[in-house]
Design a protein around this nucleic acid. Structure first.
Lengths: 199, 199
DNA sequence: ACGCATATTGGTCATGTGTCCAAGGCGAAT
DNA sequence: ATTCGCCTTGGACACATGACCAATATGCGT
């Protein structure tokens, strides 16, 4: 295969380390990912971790952001491809069905949320991601006549992570059972202006 | 004052350790709570931790369950005291407003959720709690004419933790801005009483 | 061919960790 | 007062950790 340039090999090693971290974070927990552990999983020597990353936190942060970015793209596409709000939410929930039982990806993201509490850089990175996702969803909902699109988007995003979180605990009922109330959430006001909330 | 019996003093020490753990878990993260750290916070000697608890995990699990039990009681009361579903959800969200910014309590619970992923005993303990909460909410919603009460309860519980989780990241919009769509969620389809929001 | 920059190695270092234990304290029951 | 049981003390143990570094390998441009 390829005896690539030194920098190319370096990038590959770095990538392996990130992938190993992505695997390990859900398995053992954010704080329990150690240099030696991640190096062993990546098949490289422990010393390399501190060559490619400033610290273990740096590695973990990089892994979390890279993964989350990729993981959120799919559900977002599902939502956008839907013809109407109800179908969109249905698709979103379907995409979420992947997160059944103890899904490593969802655990990773939750771990990252918590770690972000104690890491300013990670916090802003994740918050930016969430805002982008939320803004996209709000725009789409608004464009399809859903009232309070922005609030709906906030709720949907919270719902996604909340369901994912509870899934980790035990078998929360299948998502399809939730569709009734959910479709009400994004239903356009039937006749009169009913869903409005005067402050 | 005091000069209580030996066993009484022991119970007090144990209580202090639990309280210290409750403080520390959100501050430094579940995995970073060490014997010496928690002992220092509790004002006792490190050796005592392993007298009152089998291990650090044992301490953390005890702290999480005891705290979560107490923390969920208040919102549940708020919900139950409400006259109708819309008001109930409003009260629930109000109670949640306590969780503004980085609320230690919500972080504690989230940390516990994640730790439960790798601890069977803790997992069943937390799942039992969540089920009780969910069942109570469902019963109450059902008794107030909300359709799909069970699914609604699942959504509400997920919503609570999801909002709490996202709150930790940054200033998610105030809860009152979410009430419009939320009242739609629990609105009864019947013509008479709908999701109007008294206040 | 020769340096040159990058990637890798194998090891060391001080520090902090969970767990355990023998000895001491101290109130309570006899 | 003496014994008994719980609580507490201070220290010890073996071990894992993050970070660091001088030396080495590897492929690049010249």
């Amino acid at each position: 295969m390829s005896a690539q340039s030194a920098s190319e090999k370096g990038r590959q090693t770095r990538r392996r380390l990130v992938e190993a971290a992505v695997e390990l974070i859900p398995e053992v927990g954010w704080g329990a990912v150690t240099t030696r552990l991640v190096a062993e999983r990546a098949g490289v020597r422990p010393g390399l971790v501190h060559y490619h990353f400033d610290s273990v936190s740096d590695l973990l942060g990089t892994a979390a952001v890279e993964f989350a970015e990729a993981a959120l793209a799919a559900p977002m596409r599902s939502l956008r491809a839907a013809p109407d709000p109800a179908a969109g939410v249905a698709r979103l929930m379907e995409a979420l069905e992947v997160y059944s039982g103890h899904d490593p990806g969802s655990l990773l993201i939750t771990e990252a949320y918590l770690a972000a509490t104690r890491d300013a850089a990670l916090r802003t990175a994740l918050a930016d991601m969430l805002d982008r996702f939320r803004a996209d969803a709000a725009r789409w909902l608004d464009g399809h006549g859903v009232p309070d699109a922005e609030a709906c988007a906030v709720l949907l995003c919270a719902l996604v992570d909340g369901i994912v979180l509870h899934r980790g605990l035990a078998g929360t009922p299948g998502v399809q059972d939730l569709m009734g109330p959910l479709s009400r959430l994004v239903a356009a006001p039937a006749a009169g202006d009913d869903g409005r909330n005067p402050e």
